[in-house]
Design a protein around this nucleic acid. Sequence first.
DNA 1: TCCATGATAGGAACACGTTCCAGTTCGTCC
DNA 2: GGACGAACTGGAACGTGTTCCTATCATGGA
Lengths: 200, 200
Amino acid sequence: MSATNSLSVEDLGSAAQRDRRKRILDATIDLASKGGFDAVQMRAVADQAEVALGTLYRYFPSKIHLLVSALGREFERTAAARRDVDIPGDTASERVINVLKGTTRGLQSSPHLTEALTRAFMFADASVQAEIHQVGMLLSSMLTRAMHPGQLEPSEDDVAIARVIGDVWLSALVGWVTGRMTAAETGAQIERAVHLILRD
Amino acid sequence: MSATNSLSVEDLGSAAQRDRRKRILDATIDLASKGGFDAVQMRAVADQAEVALGTLYRYFPSKIHLLVSALGREFERTAAARRDVDIPGDTASERVINVLKGTTRGLQSSPHLTEALTRAFMFADASVQAEIHQVGMLLSSMLTRAMHPGQLEPSEDDVAIARVIGDVWLSALVGWVTGRMTAAETGAQIERAVHLILRD
DNA sequence: TCCATGATAGGAACACGTTCCAGTTCGTCC
DNA sequence: GGACGAACTGGAACGTGTTCCTATCATGGA
């Protein structure tokens, strides 16, 4: 529990602090959207957020923490937007593919941002576990909801399946952001994996 | 003049180069084995390989290229050692699990080395495509051979399956090297994925 | 033998993540 | 209002990946 950004989003001490944290994350997303991982330079983030470099490091102990936290905020935002929307598709695999394709399409529309966030996610070590776990849970519940809409508690098997699919999705995403696969190939790879696992 | 060079006189030029390349990769593996990604510092590699920093960069244009090349050499070495050994197991999934567990066990016996190579692999961009493709091919053929021993040309489906399994393996490996999963969890995750995909 | 050419050595210099510090401002309690 | 501690600012400084430059060395051709 060392590297907590000590303050949870809900109960920050003061408006000034909430402001700073938000400004920092906004600047991060902005810079990442424009130029990807390399463009998110700590001095540039601090400048744009109008905080000192030391303050930036007080809120986020490393560039990786910063990016993963930003990823968490974005992911939560888009997940919340979908949460109450019915996923189209007659079978579990159709729905899973639809939800993954939707998400992937969203990511591919801001390639630089996706590159920055994926790189950070892949480079993160155990000290970022909390932030990463949050993202993993969101993805998992997204997938189990797609498999069994309306069901509250997914079975252990469903969670395992969601995890495997999530792994394939992540690998495909890495292949795409690192320029080793095209967008079409990532889509095909995910679709093939889903059909292999959820054969229906 | 040392007498350590055992190669013939007319090959001296390229032999010297081969020598340097080998020394560099040896130093890389050695440093990575001891301290992981962070310990592979370009100045340290150059020192230990007894080449100048500029020479190191002439052979490998970045730390990532260096590590991925080292990974390729190691992977090839161990793959070659297995190539002519029969994989135990009565079913395809048993054999696939065996071959993956064997490989994983090998990796987990040098955790620092694995951490360094996996990080590099995950961080590599398109400029390292060639080296990465080589590793991917080795892994793929290892898996298709485990599925259908003795068969020369794997079917398209087999390749797709191998790829999905490889993705899960990679994700599990990343989880392990970044300290987010234990060795036992990676094994369980891989086993579950193989059973989900190759149900037999 | 001598020269042209490319490879190497040695090392300075730069960029960016990270750490650290001295001084200033802000919020809180008396 | 004053005092005190926490947070913030501005900036220097350090480590490591990367680039660049000059001098030296090795090799093959004239």
